[in-house]
Write a protein that binds this DNA or RNA. Structure first.
Lengths: 199, 199
DNA sequence: AATTAGTAAATAAACGTTTACTTATATTTG
DNA sequence: CAAATATAAGTAAACGTTTATTTACTAATT
């Protein structure tokens, strides 16, 4: 039997992310994607059940999977609070600014009902996504070192600004402005750490 | 001559927002919208040049316009820093949790190239959007009361968590969980104010 | 009577997906 | 150890449907 060439599968994913970032999820069509990946439309259907399956797997496997790995790289849930938060900030900022296509699809995850549903189902079913960060926050909360908030509130407080800064840094780059300095990002991160710590 | 009935225009906007929130921007079609608004497709084209024009004006006029008005309601750029930030938090949280359709389209504004472009063009051309908040932050920064950050950084630090909390509160409502208490939201807001203030 | 609001039905183009076919290779066979 | 075969990968072209938009018409009000 004939083996499948792995580069076609990768071409589909890479070009899909590229098209989504450039033209938007709402303008991605299977025929456009096939043309961009230089394959027949049928070939996509050899690897994905339908468009929905493609988008969900692209989102979960290609984007969220790689993002999670990058963010948690070298992270240890036993770290001191400030060190751990700074570690995640560093990883996240580096990964996202270097992977704009992934960031674009992640933003759609907050809008599109399809991706949003996929994200929530994965979050509930596996319960594993970012589990180390969950443990890290729970541990420091129980030790009385940080204000006792629900986990989603820590996420909002400590990490929502980071996403906004990533987005802003893309826009600065588009306008050919200099990037945020490491010192500035460090200052914002420190401010947030301070705001979460109990006196 | 025959006068146009204003309720058809409003039906188009209301149903469009409803459909976008329920099924996503990528699944909104002109024919679906016409059927939902109980009019002929042609009628939409009497009021909007094309689909793009409809979406952009829906976003800018219907959503961002009303949002800006709600957020700035009663806000005074001469307020003390903590009061002003708390005021905006209160306005924003109340408006967005009561207008889920508007929030959904605003989220698309961060993903969709079409809406994103419209947003940035308006931001640059008019330079007026949220000008009072801009003045408010600049004034307190120049007086040396808060850390000297660029404006977009303040936006990230002070308001990105608020959006995340609004989103989270919709998800809690969907899961029939109790809403965030006013005290909790107040605590988070105070933490952020603290993190921006210079010692 | 003049003019614009509004409609039903049609348009061509693009859509997701499938059919009918060809190509390439791992394994079996001579 | 080749040649034959089986099988899945891959393609080109088509399927019926839905898309955005328009044409040709009717309705209502000044």
């Amino acid at each position: 039997m004939r083996p499948r060439s792995a580069d076609k599968e990768q071409a589909i994913r890479t070009k899909a992310l590229q098209l989504i970032r450039e033209e938007g999820l709402e303008n991605l069509s299977m025929q456009k994607l096939a043309k961009a990946a230089e394959i027949s439309p049928r070939t996509i259907y050899l690897k994905y059940k339908d468009k929905e399956d493609l988008l969900i797997r692209l989102f979960i496997e290609e984007v969220l999977g790689a993002y999670e790995a990058a963010v948690l790289d070298g992270f240890d849930d036993m770290q001191p609070f400030a060190d751990g938060v700074r570690h995640i900030w560093q990883n996240t900022y580096c990964y996202l600014t270097a992977n704009r296509e992934a960031f674009a699809l992640m933003q759609y995850g907050k809008s599109s009902p399809l991706l949003n549903k996929a994200y929530q189902e994965r979050g509930i079913r596996e319960g594993q996504f970012f589990a180390p960060i969950h443990r890290f926050l729970t541990r420091h909360a129980e030790a009385g070192r940080i204000r006792p908030f629900p986990i989603p509130v820590y996420r909002a407080l400590l990490f929502a600004p980071l996403f906004e800064l990533v987005n802003e840094s893309f826009e600065r780059a588009d306008r050919h402005e200099p990037p945020f300095s490491e010192a500035l990002l460090g200052d914002v991160c420190s401010s947030l750490i301070q705001s979460a710590l109990l006196p």
